[in-house]
Design a binder for these strands. Structure first.
Lengths: 154, 154
DNA sequence: GTGGATGCAAAGAATTTGCAACCAA
DNA sequence: TTGGTTGCAAATTCTTTGCATCCAC
């Protein structure tokens, strides 16, 4: 265990995620722990490829990242976020507040929006006969920095 | 011009879309018209691949569908919708009411939800300095049919 | 006539899968 | 011990691109 452990070692969110893994009868392996740490450390939606980069020191295969993230999503440890260009990113959600994102369509910067008036609407969907209702809401726009210069840099 | 024209021939939404194409200085070509008709006919989010199937009689290349849809999205003729599995679908939006979807995570059935309380939230995003603000909201759940039988058929 | 659009094929990116070796429980 | 997990490589799937031809304007 080395350089990047200082941030998430003994992180309660990590422990909680590991507990969820265990409860779902999945094994706590070294790649999974590394991926979870990378997710927690990143704080926000992150690309599969970027996760792979972050855990490369741990020698974790890209295919393993895909497989683990798929498992995490099923269990509810991460959620999938959609970017305007159609790509998917994943965000660690255990122990976090429900929120949504504002994504700059120019520089891809992601901000959180803590207000959520949508949860109430889930009842409407439920009343239509749906179960396991969830929702996904993303805001897109051009951020202030990108409006000023056309460079696209934040 | 043949079998499937009966539905969308002289459709005002088609005319409006063609006008938007023209105004954006794009040419009105036979593949584009065919793709627009397929989109209008389908009524709802549709996969690129499925569009290609629908216009195959018109001999339109898959690459052309990708290129046209990209142009349509930029112009605002279609909008991208996200499915829980991460795939993108596209929906014809010209002359239609703003709405959101309820997507069954089991059978992928799509229903419309005409209520939208989110538009008001765009102001919050705007107040944060963003311009060209838009949002994307999707609901996911297991529909009644899929709850009853485990087959996944609607 | 001319530049944008298309078809075709090939490249490139993203994601999945088969299988032997490995290791957490 | 043993079945879930991983690494590796190959296969798929998805999407983009180069270029000669074509056609909408």
């Amino acid at each position: 265990m080395s350089t990047d452990d200082h941030i998430t070692e003994n992180d309660p969110r990590l422990d909680q995620a590991l507990a969820m893994l265990h409860q779902a009868r999945h094994r706590v392996t070294q790649p999974r722990v590394a991926i979870l740490k990378a997710l927690i450390e990143h704080e926000g939606p992150i690309k599969i490829e970027d996760i792979h980069q972050k855990v490369e020191a741990h020698n974790c295969d890209l295919a393993t990242v895909y497989r683990c993230i798929a498992a995490f999503e099923k269990i509810g440890i991460v959620r999938r976020c959609f970017f305007p260009d159609g790509s998917s990113l994943f965000e660690f959600v255990v122990g976090g507040e429900h929120h949504h994102h504002i994504i700059c369509t120019s520089c891809q910067k992601v901000e959180n929006l803590d207000v959520c008036v949508v949860a109430g609407l889930e009842r409407l969907v439920h009343d239509r006969g749906y179960s396991n209702v969830s929702h996904m809401l993303e805001f897109f726009g051009t951020c202030e920095d990108c409006s000023e210069d056309r460079s696209g840099n934040p």
